[in-house]
């Protein structure tokens, strides 16, 4: 059905929720795929079902129709093999665990020793905070710890659900740069949900635009900029033009 190199293959996925007024459609006939090591962002108006979509891909929510294949596995098998890693809008750090023990949590659960938690904390710039508790960290630092936790067990697909939606603009920019840097080192496949068009363009190889509820694919855009991207890219006219084009497609 799609190329062999596809890491994530979403085929005709629909989802509707039952309510007292009958079925409410949330997603309608979504199909796309992401290559191994590709960075794909999904943007759409609020309530378009983008969070639902990423949860369906990660097998946290069952689709009403359609299938998701991950490196040839069903999404359930992929989840059970620990191929997915989620980063949520909230860092979801356990307040009773030290930062390093939070980062270690997936290893405890999966019984793996893929990556050294201390090394990952270094990668996200949190060296020296290993033995602190989450409440002692700022929001941006907490989200960096969550990113380190998401990578400890060497997942195949990183599923990020508006991970930087709760932090301020400046923090967001620096988290974006940091995410790119890390992604360039480890080349995991990333699916990122965001409502920031410029964030999507800056980070991604491709941007998928969803329509209003029920969410359908409106546009799949190859981002025309080469790697490696510098922060200054955001100020260039060609970048602004791509952002403007996508904003119009969002309307």
């Amino acid at each position: 059905m799609s190329a062999d190199s596809a890491m994530v293959d979403v085929v005709n996925v629909s989802k509707s929720y039952s309510s007292s007024n009958g079925a409410v459609p949330a997603l309608d006939g979504i199909s796309f795929s992401a290559e191994k090591g590709e960075f794909v962002s999904i943007i759409g108006p609020s309530g378009c079902g983008k969070s639902t979509l990423i949860k369906i891909i990660g097998d946290l929510v069952q689709p009403s129709q359609g299938t998701v294949r991950v490196a040839g596995h069903t999404s359930r098998d992929a989840r059970q093999q620990g191929m997915f890693s989620f980063v949520f809008q909230n860092p979801v750090l356990l307040p009773w665990r030290r930062v390093i023990d939070n980062v270690r949590l997936p290893l405890e659960i999966l019984g793996r020793h893929s990556r050294d938690p201390a090394h990952l904390l270094e990668m996200v710039g949190l060296t020296g905070f290993e033995t602190r508790y989450p409440k002692e960290l700022s929001g941006g630092m907490q989200q960096r710890a969550a990113l380190a936790r998401a990578l400890t067990f060497d997942p195949q697909v990183l599923l990020m659900d508006e991970p930087f939606g709760a932090v301020d603009e400046l923090t967001r920019d620096s988290l974006n740069s940091q995410l790119l840097e890390i992604w360039q080192k480890i080349r995991v496949t990333v699916l990122l949900i965001t409502h920031s068009v410029s964030e999507a363009v800056f980070l991604s190889d491709r941007v998928i635009v969803l329509s209003r509820r029920p969410g359908t694919i409106r546009e799949i855009l190859e981002v025309p900029f080469t790697r490696t991207r510098e922060k200054s890219l955001k100020e260039t006219p060609s970048f602004q033009e791509v952002v403007k084009f996508l904003r119009e497609r969002l309307e």
């Binding site: 989840r79 949520f88 979801v92 999966l110």
Partner: peptide, 25 residues
């Protein structure tokens, strides 16, 4: 926190792990 449960589910944690690592604390 439902996100914490989603996190545990994404890691295929057993119900014993969810109990001891999330619910009891």
């Amino acid at each position: 926190d439902p996100d914490a449960l989603d996190l545990m589910k994404s890691l295929s944690a057993s119900s014993w792990q969810v109990l001891t690592k999330i619910r009891i604390p």
